[in-house]
Amino acid sequence: MTETIAPIEALKDKGPDKPPRSRWKDVWDQFKKHKGAMFGLGFLMFITLAVLIGPFLWDADPQKIDIRNKNMRPIYTAIWDGDAKVGWNKPLGSDQLGRDQMAQILSGGRASMAVGWAAMVLSLLIGTAIGVAAGFYKKLDGLLMRTTDLFLALPVLPLLLLAVTLFRQPLTSTFGPEGGMFILIVSIIAVTSWMPTARIVRGDVLAIKEREFVLAARSIGTLPGKIIRRHLLPNVLSPILVSAALGLATAIITESALSFLGVGFPSDFPTWGKMLADAVVRMEEYPERVLLPGIAISLTVLSVNYLGDGLRDALDPRIRGR
């Protein structure tokens, strides 16, 4: 009478037939599919390593004036112009004071990348803090979001120029010409670029804090600070990462633009924007002095932008797994 019903196929499994996959492994698998993003990641790692390790491998002093070897062309110029003044001692040539271009590119890149990373991290910290505070504490929301709107209404580039010309004197006298300028440029870029992050984070926090798991956490007596750290921040990580990539690109471009307009670092401290600006007057005879730093900036920013694109796709669960 009692026939044993054969269990259906799926229920025969003793356990999961595949090992469990973590979320980050899924993200990485999706990220790998985006060719541009992989190129971006690769190039960003390459350029970061190059500016970090490069100065040790090529240890010429970027500031050393070597007037006998001035105006040398890059070594590859010899391919089409046999008479060009080239030499292996200056592989990328030298400028009108004989300063080594290779060493300048490397140390200039170090400055540009340092400013970019520092400004991006600072702007993310401000943006995330304000976004979380505005989304989580209802009392602060109105005030903080009005402030954000106000900052968005400020004209950025004029204000940047304004602030640099105004505060250069006091800061450089306290922290030295390079340190003061670094602090000034990083903080100004951060102060004028945190608003998009704050808006995105606030929107996400507003949605997430109404979810059941936050209610559950609250009901077992979790303190607000703990809820933010343990439950909210990990969930808003993906928009933060994406805006981090975009922020890095903007910060690098802004720093170069400031240097280009002549309000950036002091004149004997090379950055990519500075090198480009100094070379513009002689670009007819020595186009490579404009091209090399320009290409360096453009490729870095391009790779960061692609990285951000890939991250956005990889972190979006609606796209992932398709």
């Binding site: 690109a249 280009f260 513009v280 091209l291 453009s298 920013v301 391009l302 932008n305 694109d309």
Partner: peptide
């Protein structure tokens, strides 16, 4: 468009 996004005007101009 990605390139247009990434190359700053102070490079395209002199170029």
């Amino acid at each position: 468009t990605m390139i247009g996004f990434s190359i700053p005007p102070f490079f395209t101009g002199p170029l």
